[in-house]
Structures are given as C-alpha cells and as structure tokens.
Design a protein around this nucleic acid. Structure first.
Lengths: 121, 121
DNA sequence: TAATCATATGAACATATATTCATATGATTA
DNA sequence: TAATCATATGAATATATGTTCATATGATTA
C-alpha cells in the first residue's frame, strides 16, 4: 500500500494523516465548550431574535413596542425575549405594568457587527 | 387615559412610545440582511460544524481525517462540509482521491474567537 | 375589589435540520 | 478495464424549534 510514517490504517479501509491528527486533537476544546458556543450562536441564528437585538442595540424598549415595530405577535416576542434572557444576553427592568428590555453583554454587539460586516461584502 | 404626546393607542388596546418607535424603525436593516445574518450564525449554531471550523482554524484537512478526529461518520462530516461550502466559509482542493478543506473567510475565525471569549467569562 | 392592561407561559402544530444508511461519483491503480 | 478508495448525496428518521392560541400572572386604576 506504500504509506509514509504519518499515515496509518483505520477501520480496515481509510488512510489518515497521523501527525496532523495529533496536532489538531490537542487543540480541540471541550465538549461543553462546543456545546455552549453552539447555544450562543443559535440565539443569533433566528431572524426575530436578530431583529430584537438590533433594536436593543439602539436603546432599551418594552415588549409592546418591540412587538409593534416588528409587527409581530406579542407572545412570539415574549418567547424570544425569554430565550435571550436565559442566555443572559438581555436584562430587564419593570416599571409598573411595563417591562423594559436592554442588552446585557458587550459581546452581543460585537457578534452582531461582525456578522453584519460579513454579509455586506 | 392620560397619555403624553409620545404615546398613542394601537390595536384598541396597547400603548406604545411613539418617538422611540420612529427612531428604532429608521435603524432597522433590510429583511434580506436579517435573513443572511441568521443564515450565517446558523452555521455556527451546530456543534459538529463548530468542531470542523475549530479544526480548520489550525490547518487544512481532508474529510477522512476530520471524520477520524471527531469520531464521526464520514457521511455526516461530508454533509456538514457541504453546508460550510455553500456559505462560502470553507474552500477545498482535490489531490487525487483526497479532498482537503480549509477556511475561506477571515470572519470565520473572528466570529469563532468572540464566541469562545464569551463562553469563557 | 373588580376591571383592565402588559407581559409570560404551556400546549399544539408546522417546519427545519442533523445523522444514518445505502448508494453514486470520480479518481487511482492493479 | 475491473477493483478499490475517498468523498458526495438522496431518502428516511428522529429531534429541535418558532409561532400561534388560549390562558395565567402580576401590576395598576376606576
């Protein structure tokens, strides 16, 4: 089969590049870290949540206003705010019956901005 | 009902803050832009794709090697590489039967890094 | 305290998506 | 050219997720 020292048989079939694999394997982060990162990006992977984030980039806003601006069901907005809240990306303050939401994390705007740059090139 | 000038009745029920809404509405980006951004982040919202990206941050690698490092089905890796390819986040070169993948976009590493920072705080 | 209002939430439904299996494709080599 | 190999891909399945509807909650006010 004429293999070099950096190749080795796997699964009776495939040939892999041994040294590369050792290097890369060392640099992998933990399963939990991948999990947490994917959950973070998942928040940004929905149009409605992105819209909410882009609104809160400018100023705090109550649920009803967000709902009106996006012309979407109040319940849908509440559900998505809950997701953002669980990921600690937004915070809120209550004033009477009204709840005002705002961004809670510097990374939110950073991630949003880089994505925005990306799609505009 | 005692409303200020910046409040107005909507849908027979709700009270919104008029000036805020006008300000924010002006700053919204287009539907297509939200769509494209959500699609970009969606790529990062899956653990397997994140793992592939983190591997390719270090060096180019063939499908078989990636499959071995992640201990995952070759087909699963191919399917995910296809997603990354469609979003133009990776490129590839063929050498004989082997196809080597590598990152194709400076934003990929930026986005990955910020997410990584975020989850480690 | 009864009515009203802003927001939250559970259940249901429709849709999207990740993986596996089987197989196709395209390149190499015996 | 037949066999082999690395990769790609379609179909099927299981699971996740976004929105809506109905209703609950918690605060205000008549």
């Amino acid at each position: 089969m004429n293999k070099t020292n950096n190749e080795v048989e796997i699964c009776d079939v495939n040939v892999i590049h041994k040294e590369k694999i050792e290097n890369v394997t060392k640099k992998l982060i933990t399963e939990d870290q991948y999990q947490n990162m994917s959950e973070l990006y998942k928040v940004f992977s929905d149009k409605t949540r992105l819209k909410i984030i882009s609104i809160l980039l400018n100023q705090e806003m109550c649920v009803c206003d967000i709902s009106f601006v996006l012309k979407m069901n109040q319940s849908a907005i509440s559900h998505q705010l809950k997701v953002l809240k669980q990921m600690r990306l937004v915070k809120y303050r209550r004033k009477g019956k009204v709840v005002y939401y705002s961004l809670n994390d510097k990374h939110v705007s950073q991630i949003f901005e880089i994505g925005f740059e990306h799609i505009n090139e």
